[in-house]
Amino acid sequence: MTRHLLVPGRGIARAEHWLRRWAETHPEYRWAPEPPGPPLILRDRVAALHTAVGESDEPAVLIAHSAGCITVALWAATHSGPVRAAMLVTPPRITGAEPDDPSDIPWVVPRARLPFRTIVVASRSDPYTTFAQFEQFAEDWGAELVDAGDVGHLDTASGFGPWPEGERLVSELG
């Protein structure tokens, strides 16, 4: 059996967001961590992900959106555990925290090859990351790149509630 851990992005996803919908329709999926509101404190998120991964020897598939992808990369750079694969959806380009931003976003996101199978889902019209930057994330992390087309940030604001193609990708990961 494979566990599925949902790694949320920076803000609170609306009820229509595909991650929230998946949590509701798949009661076996678990948040890691529960979706918090701002500010984004990555050290707390990485610690929560580490706790969730370590709660069982059963392999996990990590499903992350936006800043949750950065949480996964940071976790993998400093921790290990029974992770089978990860789907990283529209990771944001990070240039460092703004001076008035209380988060602890690092100036440099780990770019080493991830130690598990990884899919990076990219958008051609994401407001935070260019397609070329998604390609670089995928190359650096040793990930398969999935071109989702013109889907914005693949969030509620971009029109995504249900996302059946994402569920298909997750099923391929285990």
Rank of each mutant, 00 (worst) to 15 (best):
P110W: 04
Q133R: 13
A112C: 06
H153Y: 10
D104L: 01
D150L: 14
E167G: 11
D147L: 08
Y128C: 14
V146E: 08
P127V: 12
T129G: 10
D101F: 12
H153W: 05
G159K: 03
F131R: 08
G159C: 13
H153D: 11
A97F: 02
D100E: 11
V120I: 09
D126L: 08
E144S: 11
A122W: 12
D100A: 10
R111D: 15
V146K: 02
L154Y: 15
S123C: 07
H153F: 07
D150Q: 14
E144P: 00
E165L: 05
E165N: 00
D150Y: 09
S123Q: 01
P162E: 15
A97S: 13
I105H: 00
D155E: 13
S125M: 08
E172A: 15
E172C: 13
T118S: 06
G161H: 10
T95C: 02
T118Y: 07
A148Y: 03
V151Q: 15
A143M: 04
P92E: 10
V109N: 02
D101H: 08
G152R: 14
S171K: 15
Y128K: 14
D150M: 12
A97T: 09
V121S: 08
G166I: 01
P110C: 04
G152Y: 11
A132E: 15
P110F: 07
R168W: 04
D140F: 08
V120Y: 02
P127C: 11
G152I: 14
A112L: 10
P164R: 03
D100C: 04
R124G: 07
A122I: 07
P115N: 11
I94A: 00
E144M: 01
S158A: 15
E98L: 12
D147F: 03
E98I: 03
A157M: 13
P102W: 15
F116L: 01
A112F: 01
F131L: 08
L145T: 04
V170E: 02
T130A: 11
E144T: 13
A157V: 13
G149W: 00
R124N: 07
V146M: 00
S158I: 09
T130N: 13
W163K: 05
A97Y: 03
A157C: 03
A157Q: 14
S158Y: 10
